[in-house]
Write a protein that binds this DNA or RNA. Structure first.
Lengths: 188, 188
DNA sequence: ATCCTTTTTTAACATTTGTAAAAAGAAAAG
DNA sequence: CTTTTCTTTTTACAAATGTTAAAAAAGGAT
């Protein structure tokens, strides 16, 4: 549970009591490589902490898929619409490796948030840090050319190339796979 | 205070007590058109509710400005880095019209969050709704061509054209002003 | 090792978008 | 009303990216 506990504490430091309130609701689960954890259009009932493995979130349009997020050890998985508004999600989440996750039901989380001040603030911090990450990525998207975003992505995530395909990275960067190939060729 | 109260309640419904705890920390302030409310690199001490007026947030790079957000009546203004981590902000916020705002100090907000369960959950919901909006915009950015994003922007914000310049809208859409002109020409 | 499947790169061409500069239009100032 | 300034559109050309298809490379399975 090392990676998960690390994540929980990094979000917002909890007392022993609050921490065990939260962890008592976690359930260890395993899934095979390729498993579809969340499906677009479905209202999900659980969120997950990644103890081991890597996942991607994507949306479908026409016959294309756009990957807009990668997450690995020590990160959380949720379908934002389900988590935040109990509405059908707009994203599909696929596990790209055999994975060890900790599952928590969204109703348990809600109940904890509404009854425990520390955990409510933990939930606040969780959303806030995700918010900053998302907005920074959005801004860098408009400012930074794909070449540079590619380098930065690999710097902050050196093992990504070994774990996910270039097609998925290309769509994450917002270019076609052909363009990413050209970028990589220039890069050498 | 109509627009502001509306916003507060839309985020998360508060009891009378919690609501007055929050509103008692608000202070009415006025600023002229063109006023720079937040400045890139500065750690801001306040957040604002917009009662009347419209603002934009932008980042500078080289000699370009990229507008990545517009906000008007019933929305909040904060420098995310200051609000979330008490660190210097990466964005500049400019008021595009004479504005009536309600100011609240970030330290007051923090104190309320740490002491009141309802307000902590209000703060959580606030971050969560901002998070969903940001992520949806990020996704639509990758999926939707500029022409369509332009139409959607005007649909959801019919008076925007009267309130901000096309140059700012172009940079918000992630294209040059020349491209936006072409889009508008095709559109007719 | 060989075959089969999947992933990645390369090529040629079309389309889109950017750049720079000029022209047209609109708004503000005298 | 005229001049000045700022905003928006248009033009011509250059650069970047998308599309489609084929070739090359890499990974798995037998």
């Amino acid at each position: 549970m090392k990676n998960v506990l690390n994540k929980i504490k990094r979000v917002y430091d909890l007392s022993e009591e609050a921490l065990s309130l939260l962890t008592s609701r976690l359930r260890l689960v395993n899934f095979p490589k390729g498993y579809i954890l969340f499906e677009e259009g479905r209202t999900e009932k659980y969120a997950y902490f990644i103890e081991r493995g890597i996942a991607r979130a994507f949306c479908r349009k026409d016959d294309k898929e756009i990957t807009f997020w990668f997450g690995s050890e020590g990160e959380m998985l949720f379908s934002y619409n389900s988590y935040i508004s109990a509405k059908p999600g707009y994203e599909t989440v696929e596990l790209l490796e055999e994975a060890i996750l900790y599952e928590v039901s969204l109703s348990d989380l809600q109940e904890l948030f509404l009854n425990n001040l520390e955990l409510a603030n933990w939930g606040r911090k969780l959303a806030e840090t995700e918010l900053i990450k998302t907005e920074e990525r959005f801004i860098s998207y408009q400012f930074t050319p794909a070449i540079q975003r590619y380098e930065e992505l690999l710097n902050s995530n050196p093992d990504l190339l070994q774990r996910v395909s270039l097609g998925q990275i290309a769509s994450f960067l917002g270019v076609t796979q052909v363009t990413l190939s050209r970028i990589r060729a220039d890069f050498r």
